[in-house]
Design a binder for these strands. Structure first.
Lengths: 265, 265
DNA sequence: CGTATGATTGAACGCCGTCAATAAGAGTGG
DNA sequence: CCACTCTTATTGACGGCGTTCAATCATACG
């Protein structure tokens, strides 16, 4: 049901033919071979689907469904058998680990066109849920795993994504283990600023973006409490490093000053 | 020079023929095809070399050197071009991130027969250094990367190792962000106990092992100070959860009690 | 014996967590 | 439109956990 809606999503102009030529990275010779569902999908070039030939795309797309998920909906349930994998088409997904006593830690934020899932493992060790409203493209586990065996390029892309995530996880370990609360909050803002494409204010060189996470999530991502996050945000505000509108929109007049506040490595 | 020494290392009994048959996982049909250097090497079966056929092993081993590195020697220098990859044959390697002001965080501990390196990236973002005396088997970057392209099994093993490391990194993020100092130290001891094969005391069901890290390293791994680590260790000692001999040897009479002290997820 | 390194322990400080009150929206129903 | 509730965020006061600074001890090495 939602499949039909997204297939003609006005946001992406999904069915508009010729859109591919504008991408420039890879021109499809026989455009008619590319499934309707996949045309103008950014996961197809920048994401893992770039590792598939038209025939494989066809086969994959036969089992594929695009979904719109609202904030806080689970994409992957913890300790459950893995049945599907997904690509994120838009929005932000948070991966969360939960302790029996209720403490929790967000171990990763993922953005479009990231691949979502943990191949070669029966069940997941964390939950993945939509931090914002998201659009995803899902396909059955087995179909993808079969394709890995026949397409080295696909396997390679998955491998590179996991290496990228490993680099990011280790970067964040430094933040969690060795940075102060003030530096943590600044690092979070800098992370978001560099992963969301923010509105650029050409006049002043500043940027503006909406926080994809509420305070409680930011705290769980930084290993802090809500109160400390809030206090550090107002501290950054009073130091004129950021401005905040409507509790959600952040304006950074000078990105270098924000970066300096991270005590960057 | 050290190559010749390790080739006949009495510890591994490297050249003793027929040792392979005892492994059981994979019987080499033409044992004479397996390079001398690789026989009875555990990285060949459990490590990434298990993804290579005899011919590829031959080619790789022509560029391979086994080294013994002493504690604190760097295996991978940060911000330097990557020229070689390695397998850990014995000992423990620590991956460290350093901040300009001197703060540092150990982002991973690696054990035999782990693969060491970051494929597909020009330079490393962290340093890798021997936490204990180690033995490694090193080979040039290009040789391995060429083999990835021709052996899907090798690529697959590298991918699985990176997924394993990603899982471990995210587990540790929970420890760094949400556990108390006492829980962190207990978690560290538990991690070592499950990654080193410890001496098992069959009478009492306890275990005994040597800490591969000194207090300063433990602190850098846990995001704490040396003093806090020391205090928490004596607290665990006074709670009869562990005993410590010679500052290095740890005895855990009851592993379940240690696990409980981690507030395990 | 003197020095260097690593580890433990104590005392005092301070950052961040806890508890609590307040405020601002958003949604619901009268 | 207002009254009410629920969620989210901010701010203050206080206390505790972990850091900082410092002294002491053990072991290894020249």
């Amino acid at each position: 049901m939602s499949t039909d809606r997204t297939r003609t999503d006005p946001l992406t102009g999904a069915v508009r033919s010729g859109a591919d030529a504008q991408d420039g990275r890879r021109l499809d010779i026989h455009n008619s071979d590319i499934p309707l569902l996949c045309r103008a999908c950014e996961a197809r070039h920048k994401g893992i689907c770039g590792g598939l030939d038209p025939d494989q795309l066809q086969r994959l797309s036969r089992h594929t469904h695009k979904h719109v998920l609202r904030e806080n909906v689970e994409v992957i349930a913890p300790q459950q058998p893995v049945t599907t994998y997904s690509n994120i088409l838009s929005g932000v997904v948070k991966l969360t680990k939960l302790m029996p006593d209720g403490r929790q830690q967000i171990v990763s934020l993922q953005f479009a066109p990231d691949f979502l899932g943990r191949p070669f493992k029966a069940s997941n060790e964390y939950s993945a849920e939509a931090a914002t409203d998201i659009r995803v493209c899902s396909f059955p586990r087995k179909v993808l795993e079969d394709m890995i065996d026949e397409s080295p390029d696909l396997g390679r892309r998955l491998y590179e994504q996991s290496l990228k995530e490993l680099d990011e996880a280790r970067d964040w370990m430094l933040t969690l283990g060795r940075r102060t609360a003030a530096e943590k909050v600044a690092s979070f803002l800098y992370l978001i600023a560099t992963h969301i494409d923010p509105e650029v204010d050409l006049v002043h060189g500043g940027i503006r973006f909406d926080l994809p996470l509420k305070r409680a999530d930011i705290a769980d991502f930084l290993g802090l409490t809500i109160e400390t996050v809030s206090r550090q945000l107002t501290k950054l505000r009073k130091a004129n490093i950021i401005e905040i509108e409507m509790n959600r929109t952040v304006i950074v007049p000078n990105v270098e000053r924000l970066k300096a506040a991270c005590a960057a490595s």
